[in-house]
């Protein structure tokens, strides 16, 4: 169990996967919506660059000692996951990887804001959209992480 690696993946590895990982690592309270400052305190939140896409970023150990990562795959999430699982099988570590797609939790505001902030570097315009959109997506992300924790335990 301690060797297990939970990898939250999304498009850019800057918003939904980072927040999901933070929820998993209990860096964010789940009984209330996070403030702008709380979200901006998260490592990589709205900071990931295109060069970082495809790189797994280690964010910490959870309460059971499992490693938590985030990963930006652009529009090739399923393909990247498939390739990595097969390579892991060749290397004999297939059972240690657990991928979680967070894209379905992403709201329209997050998409627009993320595109403006990360793709076009229009941070002043995009970031408020991202922050607001993330708060809207927060309950769905909390549910997803709860489901992941249950699945990993069984």
């Amino acid at each position: 169990m301690a060797n297990k690696k939970i990898i939250y993946r999304c498009f850019g590895g800057a918003h939904s996967s980072v927040v999901a990982a933070a929820i998993h690592l209990e860096q964010l309270r789940t009984d209330s919506l996070p403030s702008d400052a709380e979200l901006m305190r998260l490592t990589l939140f709205d900071r990931q660059t295109q060069d970082g896409h495809g790189l797994m970023h280690f964010l910490g150990f959870d309460e059971r000692g499992m490693q938590v990562y985030c990963l930006g795959c652009r529009n090739a999430g399923e393909t990247v996951e498939r390739v990595l699982l097969q390579v892991a099988e060749v290397l004999g570590v297939r059972e240690e990887l657990f991928f979680v797609d967070t894209l379905h939790c992403v709201t329209f505001k997050m998409r627009i804001g993320g595109y403006l902030s990360r793709r076009w570097q229009l941070i002043r315009i995009g970031r408020p959209f991202v922050l607001d959109g993330t708060r809207k997506a927060f309950p769905a992300l909390v549910k997803l992480v709860e489901k992941v924790k249950k699945e990993v335990l069984t």
Partner: peptide, 9 residues
């Protein structure tokens, strides 16, 4: 991205 992900793994 796929190539980078494998290297990252």
């Amino acid at each position: 991205v796929v190539a980078r992900a494998v290297e990252s793994l």
